[in-house]
Design a protein around this nucleic acid. Sequence first.
DNA 1: AATATACTGTTAATTTTATAACATTGTTTG
DNA 2: CAAACAATGTTATAAAATTAACAGTATATT
Lengths: 209, 209
Amino acid sequence: MKLPAKTIERLSQYRRILLSCQGKGKTHIYSHELAHLLNITAVQVRRDIMLMGYASSQKKGYDIKDLVSVIGSILDPKKNQNVAVIGVGNLGRAITSYFKGKRTKLNIVATFDNDPAKVNTVISGVNCYPVKQLPEMIKSLDISIAILTVTPDSASIVAENLVMAGIRGILNFTSVPLSVAPHVYLEEYDMVTSIEKVAYFVKKNATGT
Amino acid sequence: MKLPAKTIERLSQYRRILLSCQGKGKTHIYSHELAHLLNITAVQVRRDIMLMGYASSQKKGYDIKDLVSVIGSILDPKKNQNVAVIGVGNLGRAITSYFKGKRTKLNIVATFDNDPAKVNTVISGVNCYPVKQLPEMIKSLDISIAILTVTPDSASIVAENLVMAGIRGILNFTSVPLSVAPHVYLEEYDMVTSIEKVAYFVKKNATGT
DNA sequence: AATATACTGTTAATTTTATAACATTGTTTG
DNA sequence: CAAACAATGTTATAAAATTAACAGTATATT
């Protein structure tokens, strides 16, 4: 089964919404309800669900528990995937604390920083190691995914080390575009670009063009 | 001129790269050089540049100064656009300090928080106001864009207040999908989704499918 | 000066993503 | 029970984004 990348992104969002509904005691949900909560169309919801191969048994909407389980069977790994955050600045801390405990199969198990004041401290329950120890810790903790929140000047070299240490996926929050071997999945996100994009469309709306 | 949203995102990235090259004394750049630095194709670079309506005068590549100026003429507003960060947690701080001084026409002029310990402090040179003062400050400081980094439970209500106060664009970093009036440009980014996406493709690569 | 080279600018084709259309089916209602 | 209704599942169409193809042109080369 080969799902579109955009569908994968939405599955993650569906699940969060569904879990939240479940927490409120809801057991079933209509496609248009889910759509409304995410500001997308009901067709898109149904199509995504169809692509997963799930079909609602009733006309009372989708069974939330089933849906969560199906999404989990697609998104979640069989065995745990371990994640590291490289760079314990404000952003690294935000991500670590934000993500902590969000998913059971996907855990942040280590953070890394060069600052001696940060090394060996505990951030949201996760220990901070010196960047120098990246290779050994990646192996010993079986870390497959790295979240990169270091300063721009060290981004490239750290990424290189990550790849050499055997990392399989990188989520890059630095402003430096990375280049990695093709077997490493790379996702980049840049906040300044997002802000500039919003600014552009705000300006565009204002001027009417 | 109506440029694709994806092109707008890339223009922002082109500019950053170009400015960095300029800082190194480079005056001209080939499409394939720029492409390589961003891990995209040279065709895409040329196509984006074409869409802007710019043409290189020489075969020595694009004049960097000209390109930066053309991109600026598209992305930058005539008069300053003011930005506010709502929610001074780790993420809010990260964004504020990260963005500070990055662009001349786009400035973070205020932060907002409910925590009395944070109110009236200065974060990266920007003053923090109580959330209660949002409406008046948005007007008096002429803020058109808000970056939302509050806790999930208050995201919706804060967004509503922002819209009522006359905000024109929102960049939403909370995990709560927002719904705003159509005249407000909304961009959402969720880190957990990004991490889960990376995890999915790492898993998928590993299992060979 | 003619030819090869290397790059750009543009149109065409392809791929990806989203939307629309519609047939199907359970549920409700008169 | 039959008709109307409301929801889903699926195919078809449209829109957006990327990639490919190729013509055009300045520069370099012999």
